[in-house]
């Protein structure tokens, strides 16, 4: 009971979001029980959600520090293109297991390096995150184009497809990777020393630095972490196509911002939960998948996502303004008494 109460107090926003998610899930289930709730469709969702979810976690990390990461998508593709150069070799094709394994490692490692570049420029040089990642977005995209000559890089071992489509005990690898990433992210951000420092830096960098925290290092690690997350997403994306190309997944950039904000993370930094982001991702996924099944045009689905975002923000503002007014009235009443 007590636990429930503390959840209700501390995770109010997440509970509302979860309610919306459940509501949407039920509505979709009623509208199209045979299609939406079919095992095949649920599995499809499980394959699709992780790519997007990992991108959203990558974005969330940056937003928590009061920053922004516009380079998540091109960072992911440049990493998978570099890895692709290795996976397309005859060596990799002759030794598919090693080839795929090393390929995945290279993707994540290169993505981490792209994150390192962002982090150094943001934390140590001190340039606004928005500008740095706008620059690196173009840089990574350009490097990818230079390697691929604008086309796609293919010829990977067919085994690589298994990453995106295989399953362990009926659970897709993709969803396993996503769950592990969520759990790790939760512990890192909401339970660990470093994560707490991230939130503090996002609220007030000066006070945190004055408390003896190496805030530059904290921020640098955030962007490396962001790189690892979009690197993993890059692995899933290129595995789905079994190839690598610069514009794969490019639509995830703005969607990731949408999910993070919808999930309750403050765009000015310092507050937000992993659960909120994950639920927001699930909401967007259910909306797009469900409406798609009942034959709603995919553009219409995007539109509905945008409307949900704006509506939630307006509701949050209005209810916040109302409760502020109430508080002021109460305080005035107390002062009079």
């Amino acid at each position: 009971m007590k636990i429930w109460k503390s959840i209700r107090e501390n995770y109010q926003n997440e509970l509302i979001l979860f309610g919306i998610f459940v509501g949407l899930f039920i509505v979709m289930g009623i509208i199209s029980p045979d299609k939406f709730l079919s095992a095949g469709n649920l599995q499809t969702m499980c394959y699709q959600m992780p790519e997007f979810g990992l991108m959203a976690l990558a974005m969330m990390a940056a937003v928590l520090t009061g920053g922004m990461n516009l380079s998540i998508c091109t960072g992911a593709t440049v990493a998978s293109i570099v890895a692709g150069c290795f996976m397309a070799t005859t060596f990799a094709n002759e030794n598919p297991a090693i080839g795929v394994f090393v390929g995945i490692i290279i993707t994540v490692a290169v993505a981490a390096v792209t994150g390192l570049l962002n982090g150094v420029l943001i934390a140590y040089v001190g340039v606004t995150a928005m500008l740095v990642t706008l620059g690196t977005k173009l840089l990574f995209e350009g490097l990818g184009l230079v390697v691929t000559k604008g086309g796609s890089l293919a010829g990977f071992p067919p085994l690589f497809l298994k990453v995106g489509s295989g399953a362990l005990l009926g659970i897709p690898y993709t969803i396993l990777i996503y769950i592990v990433a969520i759990v790790i992210t939760y512990f890192l951000f909401e339970r660990s020393v470093w994560g707490t420092q991230v939130y503090m830096v996002g609220c007030n960098e000066t006070a945190t630095r004055f408390s003896g925290i190496a805030t530059r290092r904290t921020v640098l690690l955030v962007y490396i972490y962001s790189g690892i997350m979009y690197g993993l997403s890059g692995v899933l994306i290129s595995s789905r196509y079994c190839s690598a190309k610069t514009d794969y997944g490019s639509s995830y950039l703005m969607q990731a911002v949408t999910a993070v904000v919808l999930g309750g993370t403050s765009i000015s930094g310092g507050s937000g939960t992993v659960a909120g982001t994950v639920i927001a991702v699930a909401i967007i996924q259910v909306v797009s998948n469900g409406l798609n099944l009942v034959g709603v045009n995919r553009y219409m689905i995007n539109m509905i996502t945008g409307i949900i975002l704006i509506a939630v923000l307006i509701v949050r503002y209005v209810s916040g303004a109302l409760s502020d007014k109430k508080k002021i009235r109460e305080r005035a009443a107390r002062a009079r008494a």
Partner: peptide, 23 residues
């Protein structure tokens, strides 16, 4: 009027309008 940060507000209208036009 609604004090939505510009980056989020314009991202929202971008999504909605672009989708509506493409639809």
């Amino acid at each position: 009027k609604f004090h939505i940060p510009p980056i989020v507000a314009t991202l929202g209208t971008q999504t909605i309008v672009m989708a509506a036009v493409l639809f």
